[in-house]
């Protein structure tokens, strides 16, 4: 589903990623671990071009999204992303956060269809052969109701439906992060990228967020997770990448990686964190 070919990223003269090759298949859960400054977050952020790669390509569903000519927004809709700092929209209510993107995109599509119909109608005035109109089978109201219903369903799933009309500033970290996750889910993404989803949380809230991620994993969602939670990586991941110095040093199954790491740097890292 995602093929990363020779991905490089420089900040000025600093080489952060030094040529990464990896492919993620549908349904896989890939955990990326490694010491701080190893380039894991940069790697993840390059996957949906939050950071533009300096070199190399990222093939997502057959399209090279690292190409600057590609409309990246269309492809990002199929790649959810969850941030360390949650990044809920502060000026929107909880349900507004979840609805914003799907609603905007669907209403935009509707507007485009209507515009096209007007153009066709104008064209029809002069043409002998009347061109057929684009079929529009929804209205603004219907779209709004649909998106809202979907958002409420997702909220109910995490048990926060009574928080729908509150603003993010009144929520706990764990609640914010779970809402950030279902905000990504509301777009029906093919893959979700997690950038240290539990690192900014109080220890007692880590569990609820990891549980939700685990649920999604069990449902077959494709995921790439940058994490410091080794136990979680071992339990959920189907593959573990160990990164250091901007390179992938080891790529292994979680059992193999945690019990018998091949790379000496990985061994050293694990001996420190486990």
């Amino acid at each position: 589903m995602i093929d990363v070919i020779d991905l490089k990223k420089n900040y000025g003269r600093l080489e952060v990623l030094k040529g990464i090759n990896i492919s993620v298949k549908e349904g896989e859960k890939v955990a990326v671990v490694g010491p701080s400054g190893s380039g894991k977050s940069t790697f993840l952020r390059c996957l949906n071009c939050m950071e533009d790669p300096t070199d190399g390509s990222i093939i997502f569903q057959g399209v090279n999204i690292a190409d600057m000519k590609v409309d990246i927004n269309v492809h990002r809709r199929h790649m959810g992303m969850v941030f360390q700092q949650f990044n809920l929209f502060n000026n929107k209510t909880v349900i507004g956060n979840i609805m914003l993107a799907p609603l905007h995109i669907k209403l935009h599509e509707l507007r485009m269809k209507k515009l096209k119909n007007i153009l066709i109608k104008v064209g029809n005035i002069f043409a002998k052969e009347k061109a057929p109109l684009v079929e529009i089978n929804t209205t603004r109201v219907q779209i709004k109701a649909e998106v809202r219903e979907n958002a409420l369903r997702l909220l109910k799933r995490i048990g926060l439906e009574e928080k729908a009309e509150t603003y993010p500033s009144t929520l706990s970290g764990g609640q914010k992060q779970r809402i950030a996750i279902i905000r990504a889910l509301a777009m029906n993404p093919k893959v979700i990228l997690f950038d240290e989803p539990t690192s900014a949380l109080d220890p007692e809230m880590v569990g609820e967020v990891l549980d939700l991620i685990k649920q999604l994993a069990d449902e077959g969602m494709t995921m790439v997770i940058v994490t410091h939670e080794m136990g979680f990586a071992r339990e959920v991941a189907t593959r573990v990448l160990f990164m250091d110095g901007g390179q992938i040093l080891e790529e292994n199954t979680p059992d193999e990686f945690f019990s018998n790491p091949q790379n000496p740097r990985a061994r050293e890292f694990l001996s420190k964190v486990l």
Partner: peptide
């Protein structure tokens, strides 16, 4: 405004302009 707000908007597939105006 926290740059994370812009990132979050872009990450759900909204364009720069839309994220700017709405968020």
């Amino acid at each position: 405004v926290d740059p994370g707000q812009m990132e979050a908007g872009r990450a759900v597939g909204l364009s720069y302009g839309v994220t700017m105006m709405k968020i």
